[in-house]
Amino acid sequence: MKLNKLFKPAGLVGSLALGSALSAVAPAAMADQEYLLTVTRPNQLHVIDMSTNKIARTCDIPGPFGTGSIALSPDNTHAYVLSNGTKDVYGFDIRNCDITFKAEQSSPTEQVISMQSITVSADGTELYTVQNPVKKLRDRFEVEQPRLAVFNIADGMNAKVVRTFPVDRRITKIATTAQNEIILGGADLKAINPKTGEIRIVTKLANWEKGPLWLPPDAFAMHSQGEQADEYIMPYVTAKFDSEEWNFETAEWWWGMSRVDLKTGKAERMETIPFEFIIFNFITDPRDSNILYGSFNTLSKHDISQNKTLAVREMEHTYYDLNISGDGKTLYVGGTSSDISVHDSDTLEKIGSIQLTGDMSTSDLRVATIKD
């Protein structure tokens, strides 16, 4: 039935009532849609509707499994995945599984591996990887200088490198700031300008100058998934000794982090909570930057303003990573196996589970928010 036929017999009062009803349902119709993204073996990208915790669609990724590293376009409609043993990059429209981008990084004379390192420019026009190249000669392999590689996303299914810049070794997770600097998670946290190759120190880690009583930090950037708080977190472990003799048994052991605000590019480095158990990665509650959650054999909640662990829940098995809903109420803990454990963020109580078709291994757990 046409809307104008509804209005005529009802008169002005009926029209106003219907208008009010339509206004009442409009906000729900325009709500942002959140999707949880992860990759499972043998090599599939899963798009999970977070309003129902059901798989909305599954996209087949060409080539053998890589590490499951995922980068999102700024509008969150496209996901870029490292595949083929992390040699290639594929881009997907997560709304329909269409493959829109392909970059083969290796050649007959050079093998290229990108360990977790993938991100997209702030304007969505370029894709970046850190390439670890090896030259293949007749009688030997030669390890070459790692480099930041830049691709034009508009090149689609035949994307080639348009420029490169030398970078450090040991770089894993990378991210893009609003100023389009690329944060490089390595021995120290650095940032590179992808137009000029200029590099700056963000925070010193391996080379920090904290004094003779502090152990240089052991930093790890396998998973940094701070899209809900618009940040990059690199956790580390350190120790404070009671003398320069460095007695490890009497030392104070700490978790710490270098955290970068991706809106401003500014960073903070701090010791956060006492080291009591292993944590593979941290995420921040989008409602309160002092509240962190961590995962591995436990799911944990921490208040870094008090250097205090608030709650710990033992998990059924190891989970490498976690993410959080945009309202901060629900935690999704994944990686390692074939299930995503769903928890209330206030209590850490388990409230659900999402079963996948294969194990996630080292895969990311990303949240893509598509605005209506």
Rank of each mutant, 00 (worst) to 15 (best):
N152L: 08
K160R: 15
K204W: 06
A154W: 01
G197Q: 02
D168S: 15
K195G: 13
G156P: 01
T172N: 14
P194Y: 02
A191V: 04
D168K: 15
M157Y: 09
E181T: 06
L148T: 03
W208D: 04
D188S: 07
A187I: 13
E198T: 14
M157T: 09
E144W: 11
E181F: 11
V162N: 12
K190P: 08
I183L: 05
A178V: 11
V202I: 08
R147D: 11
Q145I: 12
I182P: 00
L184I: 13
F165D: 01
L213Q: 13
R170Q: 15
P194I: 03
E144Q: 13
A191S: 09
G156S: 01
I174N: 04
V161M: 09
I199F: 10
I201C: 10
N158D: 13
I201T: 14
G197K: 02
A159C: 03
D155A: 14
A175D: 01
N180M: 08
L148C: 04
A206L: 15
K204I: 08
G186H: 04
E209Y: 03
I201E: 10
N152D: 15
A149Y: 13
T164M: 05
L205G: 11
N158I: 13
K210E: 07
N180C: 01
I153G: 02
E144M: 15
G197Y: 04
I171H: 09
L184D: 05
W208F: 01
I192G: 02
I171E: 06
I182W: 02
N180D: 12
R147E: 12
